[in-house]
Amino acid sequence: MPDTIEDRISAEYPTLSGQLRRAADFVAANPVDVATRSLRAMAQSSGVSPATFSRLARTLGFEDYESLRETQRAAMGERLVPYAQRAEELRRGDQAPQTFLHRQAGVCSQNIALLERTISGERLSAAVDALHDAGKVLLVGLLGSAGIADYICYQAQYFARNWAVAGRSGSSLAASFASMSPGDAVIVLTKAPYARDSIRAAQVARANGFRTIVLTDSHTCPALEVADHPFIVPSQTANFFSSYTATLVLIETMMSMLVSRVGPEAEARIRATEEQTRQLTEV
């Protein structure tokens, strides 16, 4: 069974009717309301009938809507208070620099805490196994995810020779895929608004038998439908732009796990890379 309510929604989303999708979208977008308000209040706010929310809960594998609500309450935990505090700060309109820092740092901390609670060790290990066993690993990141993909590849190349970023150094996405074989791995990073080429890359990767890992921010991301290893990463922000903080924590965790599995040859490559870096930067 998927780890969170949003994971369950993403797994069932392609098969949901229009009304159930409306209910699912509301549940995913309003976790605090789900955890704290009655079914009747939810129905009034959303325009979706109580019966539809109850039907959604059963479709997602819950006994009833109350079971879904209790699960959301447990998942929210201490996040309920910080949301209220942030709302109060926004209402006061405090423009002090320290307030901006406190607000953004608080949201990012909550994202990381939620990531830690909701990503199971089994799911994480399965994705790392796919990366470890792959002959090649290709990273796909466009729009705001482009710099993150470059950073991951830069880090991976310290201990591995088989990682690359798709569509870099003048090559096209198609050329990047042409050098791949079944059993290789593709990591797709995409957040709203989802780049069409990123979604297409995930679909092509799956069709060609590549192990597909998708890191995204919502159950509505079309790439989740074809992911072997889907991850919906908390990306809330006090800024105008989706936060990548928790995504980086997840990625860096995967990197650490990979290094621990590769063994002495990885350590030797890291030492050699560090030595070359030292020589190149010596004055």
Rank of each mutant, 00 (worst) to 15 (best):
166 A>Y: 11
166 A>R: 04
166 A>P: 06
166 A>K: 08
167 G>C: 07
167 G>Q: 10
168 R>D: 10
169 S>P: 01
170 G>R: 10
170 G>A: 08
171 S>W: 11
171 S>T: 14
171 S>D: 10
172 S>R: 11
172 S>Q: 11
173 L>M: 14
173 L>Q: 13
174 A>H: 13
174 A>T: 14
175 A>R: 09
175 A>K: 10
175 A>W: 13
175 A>S: 14
176 S>A: 03
176 S>Q: 13
176 S>P: 05
177 F>D: 06
177 F>K: 02
178 A>K: 07
178 A>E: 14
179 S>M: 07
179 S>D: 07
179 S>L: 10
179 S>C: 04
179 S>I: 02
180 M>L: 12
180 M>A: 06
180 M>S: 04
180 M>V: 06
180 M>D: 04
181 S>D: 14
182 P>I: 11
182 P>S: 12
183 G>H: 12
183 G>I: 03
183 G>C: 09
183 G>N: 10
183 G>D: 04
184 D>Y: 07
185 A>R: 04
185 A>I: 00
185 A>H: 00
186 V>S: 01
186 V>K: 01
186 V>E: 01
187 I>K: 03
189 L>N: 02
189 L>M: 02
190 T>W: 10
190 T>Y: 05
191 K>Y: 13
191 K>C: 13
191 K>Q: 15
191 K>L: 14
192 A>W: 08
192 A>N: 01
193 P>G: 10
193 P>F: 07
193 P>L: 03
194 Y>E: 10
194 Y>D: 05
194 Y>W: 15
194 Y>A: 08
195 A>E: 15
195 A>L: 05
195 A>G: 10
195 A>K: 11
195 A>S: 15
197 D>K: 13
197 D>Q: 15
197 D>Y: 10
197 D>P: 06
198 S>H: 02
198 S>T: 04
198 S>N: 02
198 S>A: 14
198 S>P: 06
199 I>A: 11
199 I>D: 05
200 R>C: 11
200 R>W: 12
201 A>T: 03
201 A>D: 01
203 Q>M: 14
204 V>R: 14
204 V>P: 00
205 A>Y: 09
206 R>H: 14
206 R>V: 12
206 R>T: 14
207 A>L: 09
207 A>K: 09
207 A>H: 07
208 N>G: 09
208 N>V: 01
208 N>A: 12
209 G>T: 13
209 G>R: 07
209 G>K: 11
209 G>I: 09
210 F>L: 15
210 F>M: 15
210 F>N: 06
211 R>I: 09
211 R>P: 07
211 R>N: 13
212 T>Y: 09
212 T>H: 05
212 T>V: 13
212 T>R: 06
212 T>K: 08
212 T>Q: 12
213 I>K: 03
213 I>S: 00
213 I>N: 04
213 I>D: 03
213 I>E: 04
213 I>Y: 02
214 V>N: 05
214 V>E: 01
214 V>K: 02
214 V>S: 07
215 L>E: 00
215 L>Y: 00
216 T>D: 04
216 T>F: 00
216 T>I: 05
217 D>E: 14
217 D>R: 03
217 D>H: 13
217 D>M: 05
217 D>L: 06
218 S>K: 02
218 S>L: 03
220 T>A: 13
